[in-house]
Amino acid sequence: MDITTPHTTTSPLKLAVILASNREGRFGPVVADWFLSRAAQREDFILESIDLGDVELPTALSYNPRPAVLAELAKVSPRLADADAFVVLTPEYNHSFPASLKSLIDWHFHEWQAKPIGFISYGGISGGLRAVEQLRQVFAELHAVTVRDTVSFHNAGGLFDDKGQHKDPAAPDAAAKAMLDQLGWWGNALRAAKSRTPYAG
Rank of each mutant, 00 (worst) to 15 (best):
D173F: 00
L61Q: 06
Y63E: 14
H166T: 01
L15I: 02
A68V: 10
G184F: 05
Q137L: 13
L36A: 03
A131L: 02
I125R: 13
S195F: 01
S126F: 14
L70Q: 15
G187E: 11
W185H: 14
W34T: 01
A174W: 03
R130D: 04
V30L: 15
A156D: 11
P172N: 10
Q113I: 09
K163D: 13
M1L: 11
A60V: 12
Q165C: 10
D161T: 07
A16V: 11
D84K: 01
K115T: 02
G123P: 06
Q165P: 00
H143K: 14
T4Q: 06
S11L: 08
L135P: 01
L13I: 07
R148G: 12
A131P: 10
T197C: 12
L61N: 02
S100V: 06
V76L: 03
P78C: 00
T146E: 05
A74P: 00
L70F: 04
L13N: 02
M1C: 09
M179Q: 08
S62K: 00
R23Y: 09
H166G: 07
P29G: 09
L52I: 10
L159W: 03
R196D: 08
F109K: 12
D181K: 04
Y63F: 11
N155E: 12
L36N: 05
H108N: 15
A189P: 03
T59Y: 09
S37Y: 00
A71N: 12
L159E: 15
E72Q: 15
Q165N: 15
H143I: 03
H7A: 15
V132P: 02
R148Q: 11
A60K: 10
A99F: 05
V151D: 01
D168I: 07
L36T: 12
T4G: 15
A85V: 07
R136V: 02
V88D: 05
P78S: 00
T59R: 06
A60L: 14
L129C: 10
G127Y: 05
A81H: 11
S37Q: 14
P91H: 03
W112Q: 04
S62G: 01
H95C: 07
G118P: 05
L61T: 04
A176H: 01
K163H: 12
I3S: 06
I3D: 07
N188K: 11
K177P: 05
D149C: 02
G157Q: 11
A193I: 05
L190C: 07
D82I: 00
S152Y: 12
N155H: 10
E133I: 08
A174L: 09
V147D: 01
W186C: 08
D162F: 08
H95Q: 13
F139L: 08
N22H: 14
G157K: 13
F139V: 04
E92Y: 08
A20E: 03
P98T: 09
A192L: 10
R42M: 08
P198S: 06
I117V: 12
V138Q: 00
L129S: 14
V30E: 14
D162H: 07
L159M: 14
E56W: 06
R26I: 05
D149P: 05
P172V: 04
K177R: 13
P12R: 02
D173S: 08
